[in-house]
Nucleic acid binder design. Structure first.
Lengths: 123, 123
DNA sequence: TCCACACTTCGTGGATTGACGAATTGTAGG
DNA sequence: CCTACAATTCGTCAATCCACGAAGTGTGGA
């Protein structure tokens, strides 16, 4: 029951759903998701961990970067809800616009993405 | 997008999910659900309306009684999430116990169920 | 052994949520 | 009409949630 609520709750916030959907075309590291959604690093980090705890996404640490992707071998009930989510949302304007943004972000240097951390490191 | 969030949010509260699952074996009126879940009438009423707004359940007014049932001809994406929810939860202890309670409640007179309104009507 | 930096954790503040009871609505029966 | 009563709406309170920035963690390079 608790697992079920974890899943539905993780999908009941627009920001979290947008973050999840931004992974549909392949993995992204945290700073890339930050750049797409334009929210504070701590905020995105928290959202990603909720999606992870619900079993919807995987993490992979590479050097200083934390990469996220949609779960590649999800349990059957997770696969079902992922499929349902994707088919429901892939045509929504917000999601399409995020995926366009994603393309730009993929072309950017990881260097440039670090701008989102500037404020917190500048003292 | 908003419709999607309405659905996931309506499924992200345990009380609401229990109310929904209590309908899996047929329609119930509000006071019967109140008796199963043991919460205040206003609380249950609010939950049922959220499930209704999300498109998961139907209402039917008969005399003074408001009956609820799982949507009989749901849109495809609603049917999918209903099936997913049911298959995920039907074996959970809380749900099974609620359904047992449901049997008792079905045997009760609607008269006796009005007990839940006593407190609010006794002055 | 520093430092820079990508990320996480923690504490806070404002908004939302879920519970309740009181008051209100609407229907059935006298 | 008036009353009884099933259900809803409203106001309130405590708990939870989402955003943020500040401080802390851990990794890689100088």
């Amino acid at each position: 029951m608790n697992d079920f609520i974890k899943i539905t709750k993780s999908l009941s916030d627009e920001t979290r759903v947008r973050a999840l959907m931004s992974l549909t075309e392949g993995e992204l590291c945290l700073c890339q998701i930050i750049e797409i959604l334009k929210l504070a690093p701590s905020t995105i980090s928290k959202h990603m961990n909720l999606l992870f705890d619900a079993g919807l996404i995987e993490k992979r640490k590479q050097g200083k970067w934390q990469y996220y992707r949609i779960h590649t071998q999800p349990q059957p009930h997770i696969k079902q809800i992922l499929d349902w989510t994707l088919s429901n949302l892939q045509d929504k304007p917000t999601i399409k616009s995020d995926l366009q943004k994603r393309c730009c972000v993929m072309d950017m240097d990881l260097e440039d993405l670090s701008a989102c951390y500037k404020k917190q490191n500048q003292n």
